[in-house]
């Protein structure tokens, strides 16, 4: 349905001599070109992942064999495991810390320096990641911290906090505190008010925040590549090392698999957050 609407609109934009004052000729064409630009590279990767030829750019025939070899790739599986561990733990830490902070900043009584606290929490968004990465690398080496997994978790938890914080804070701000006052007015004590009113209502925000930090952590390259070592290689860092070795059909298959997984993860989350709006 929406697709055909879309096409109609496109046709209107491209062809018709539109008298509508809000219509700008050419914008439709730019948009079509833009979406092609956005998706063609991805489609290229997916297409060539099915190429049976070892030389990537020369099409030989359709094959699943690179997927089989990708799934048997031990280095890849290790990297997936590291990434999942780091992302899960970092997300739990970041979401808890961010929820507590957002609750205090939106609902606490007599909170001082709200702006300052927000700035501090959003610090990781304000400076280039490479600066954060080398800074934390020096810190860890000064502390003599060796364990790669611990280093990754600490660094990821830190830069995930603002990503978890923003949706939760937005949710709390969008919700008038009338509701909590109404609960207290109806004899609910502060704890019950939190449990039965505040928490259920900000749950979509917490979910969105957790989702966002998980994806950000899974996707992180700069910090992970600088901090890792000590036997912990995350998925993006592993893929990067493969890319460095050169284009390969197996790499295409791995990329396609990862895109498929993110699509499967993101789409339901997107639908849930849309329904809860």
């Amino acid at each position: 349905m929406s697709h055909s609407n879309n096409q109609n609109a496109l046709m209107r934009f491209i062809t018709a001599k539109n008298k509508d004052v809000k219509h700008y000729p050419g914008f439709g064409l730019i948009s079509v070109a833009f979406f092609l630009f956005l998706y063609l590279p991805i489609l290229v990767v997916i297409t060539y992942s099915f190429n049976s030829n070892k030389i990537v750019s020369v099409w030989q025939g359709f094959s699943f064999k690179w997927y089989l070899s990708a799934l048997q790739n031990e280095g890849l599986m290790n990297a997936v495991q590291v990434s999942l561990t780091v992302a899960t733990i970092a997300t739990i830490i970041a979401t808890s810390v961010a929820t507590a902070a957002a609750l205090v900043l939106s609902r606490g009584k007599e909170v001082k320096h709200v702006k300052l606290s927000e700035t501090v929490i959003n610090l990781p968004l304000m400076l280039p990641e490479i600066v954060f990465a080398v800074a934390i690398l020096i810190l860890f080496s000064q502390l003599g911290l060796q364990d790669g997994l611990t280093k990754l978790i600490l660094a990821h938890a830190c830069f995930c906090i603002p990503f978890a914080f923003l949706p939760i804070r937005a949710r709390l701000q969008g919700m008038t505190n009338n509701l909590e006052q109404a609960a207290q007015d109806l004899y609910a004590n502060p704890w019950i008010t939190f449990k039965r009113i505040t928490l259920p209502l900000i749950l979509p925000g917490i979910f969105a925040g957790a989702m966002l930090s998980f994806v950000i952590s899974m996707d992180d390259f700069i910090t992970s590549s600088i901090v890792s070592g000590g036997g912990a290689t995350t998925l993006p860092v592993y893929i990067f090392s493969l890319v460095k070795q050169g284009v390969s059909p197996e790499l295409n298959a791995i990329s396609t698999l990862i895109m498929l997984v993110s699509l499967l993860l993101v789409t339901p989350a997107w639908m849930i957050s849309k329904r809860n709006k």
């Binding site: 349905m1 979406f35 590279p41 991805i42 990537v56 996707d219 990329s255 699509l263």
Partner: peptide
Amino acid sequence: QSNSTKALLLYLITLPFWVSMVIRVYAWVL
């Protein structure tokens, strides 16, 4: 666009963002 088309197009814009950055840059290497 209509509301449903808007939602779809916005989803299409954010979707590549969720795909690993390394893979997106790799696509251009390819």
